[in-house]
Amino acid sequence: MRRICLLLAAIMFYHLAVSQDDLLKELDSQAPKTTVIENTFKGSRLVNGQTVETRGKGELEFIFSHRFGALNSGSYNLYGLDKAAVRLGLEYGITDRLGVGFGRSSSDKMMDYYVRYKLLRQQTSGMPVTITGFGYASVKLAPPGDATTLNDRTAYVTQLLIARKFTPQLSLQLMPTFVHKNAVDKTIESNDQLAIGVGGRFKVSRSVAITSEYYHRLDVKSTNPYKNSIGFGVDIETGGHVFQLLLCSSQRITERTFITESTGDFFNGDIHLGFNVTRAFQLKKPKPKLAQ
């Protein structure tokens, strides 16, 4: 009996002793422990390649990408500034996790179409990474070599983008990549090719980040003339724009070409100055999530 009384007295004093700060602590203990980590990267492109990021629901992003010629192409070509490759692209967020996009590149007059879906999202506890699936098809409208039908000029790229935001500043990403080309020159490459990409970003201020990206092709034929693609960039964000200033070994902009058909050797001076400029437009207002 005495024990029960002591216990009740303790409970009572506990309740009376609950001060304002204890009320806050009580709230903390009720709060959900885990939250989704967002904004692993600023934009949808790391350098040339994709990031895990999807557009928000109802957001349309216009991406203008531009790559100059190689820096080592001499003063006659104004160190590459005379020659430029361009890609114009659009990406739309159907949901917060599902996006579709397409683009047109000037090199080989190429059309590309893609879909991406955020399969898993990194959380403060539990899920350690964000994983986005990326599926892409491209058609070269200009006939390269013997590939005369559109079907022969079509290629597919499937990527699993695996990223982790280690700190608010540092995010790293791994990109296992599978490329299938309907028609290839069998003496230099296979229809099915594998590559593994690594990349990351480091934020130096609230609006500026440094990025880099490298794609290593696996199982490359000894006669293959192409090089592995490498690139570095600076992301600058202002309002609805992300401006990415790049130095990359590839002048080609989309997955199929820069991963498997990159000709430049970065450390031999084949450096292409380039930029991606994105502008976001909110087409649909997200519906407010109602109270629980």
Binding site: D21, D28, A31, V36, A280
Partner: peptide
Amino acid sequence: EVAFSIPISDFEFDKSLMKQHFN
């Protein structure tokens, strides 16, 4: 006595980019 706690990342905006910049 009163206490409240507001999770910052649960603010919803008209534009998803605004939410990103806000956070």
